[in-house]
Nucleic acid binder design. Sequence first.
DNA 1: TAGTGGTCTAGACCACCTC
DNA 2: AGGTGGTCTAGACCACTAC
Lengths: 254, 254
Amino acid sequence: MSPKPLYRQVADALRAEIADGTRPPGSKLPSERALCERFDAARNTVRMGLNVLITEGLVIPSHGRGYEVRSAEVFVLNASRSENLTLPQEGDSYTTDVKRVGREPHQEFRVELVPLPPEAASRLRVESEQDGVLRFCLRYLDGVPWSTQATYYPMWLAEGTRIAQAGDIAEGTTRYLADRGIEQVGYYDELLTRMPTPEEARDLQIGPGVPVLVWTRTGYGSDRPIRCTVTTFRGDLNRITFEVGDLSARGGQP
Amino acid sequence: MSPKPLYRQVADALRAEIADGTRPPGSKLPSERALCERFDAARNTVRMGLNVLITEGLVIPSHGRGYEVRSAEVFVLNASRSENLTLPQEGDSYTTDVKRVGREPHQEFRVELVPLPPEAASRLRVESEQDGVLRFCLRYLDGVPWSTQATYYPMWLAEGTRIAQAGDIAEGTTRYLADRGIEQVGYYDELLTRMPTPEEARDLQIGPGVPVLVWTRTGYGSDRPIRCTVTTFRGDLNRITFEVGDLSARGGQP
DNA sequence: TAGTGGTCTAGACCACCTC
DNA sequence: AGGTGGTCTAGACCACTAC
């Protein structure tokens, strides 16, 4: 039996203390130098142990203020009800969903004409590099960066609509298009997870050790795809749900 | 302007070389000592830079063999078609789905009577800590650990069925129960991502810097929940999809 | 055996935050 | 000012892998 490396002992000990409630969410860990004494280790070794916990998403380091045990308050997005045009909405789906649970939405918005990235182009079934309309949102919840959403539209759809024009579409683009005869009759959702790119980490203010959840919805008209929406969530703050079939036995649970 | 820290320069330079194809997936990075020379840095500093790339999921370190650029070959699981009893199946959903794309499934299986964990108990609407049946799978794809699946059943359902007995149920449990009058009329899916626990990292042989994708499906009968399935995927190797509505415009795409 | 990454030490100086 | 984490050095020895 080889003994565990010292830095793992540090990580394991602290992880156990977090798990059993000795160090509740929001509390501070002892300082690195204090942990050096406790474990009789060099500072680099203690830092390696703390790094494990950061990578596991358990603690957040703050320069000059110590390490804090992370608290988890997640937002649940119901992907089945989102964009369901038969449900009552005030404004777009995001605003509706967030207000429904009594939290405060805010979004920064922009519209661009861009060459379609390969993933969007293939999903929209147009040539890659061809231009398309990008409607981009950086979304906040109670002032905290929460997710980014990029929706790509093919050029043929931009003509004769306000899609390519700057400015929010108050009723939501899905409804706006539906009212103009471009109806979304079905969609294809893809979900994946990975570590954030440096750009995503910056936009969403993601610390190290937190993955992103990427939700790609391709919306279809009766004869061709009409849009491709890529939503990137902070993995530590979000959960996505789908409802299928008869859930009357479920009651009104969240 | 403060210059970037040296270890970030190391990470950025290597990340760029990976992105532009200079270092293709499967290739080896120069050794730590070689990178020390190239960047005129101490070994610890180079290791900090490499650590960034590990955390981003871009490279995998192997003791004694160097760092390898990770290659991504993902498996796509269609959660809408999975368990759809109207589709032809040979055996359970997992086996069917994997064979459909010409890959080799393998699973290690066990059945236990356990106190229900809180998340499962609340979803099954029984008291926490009460006993339930756990059917657990560790699943491989082409010999690589791919996902774990834990399905919890309430005790009332175990009586008079083979659910609580060890051994695989060849036709799949969903069909087995349906054939015995316990029909799943709807389900509620939840998706989240996080970093793996040490146990998950061991079972799935997940390296540092790779998140897991957790898919929880609660199946409902006409009057109450009948099971809760928690599937934990390696985030680097899996993607989940959902289909809703009329997708005839989509054709037979994968 | 030689080269690789894994672990670890004992310092140093800097940048940030709180008081 | 004093404590915190952030960065960095220059070594050391061990464990694993390849040849």
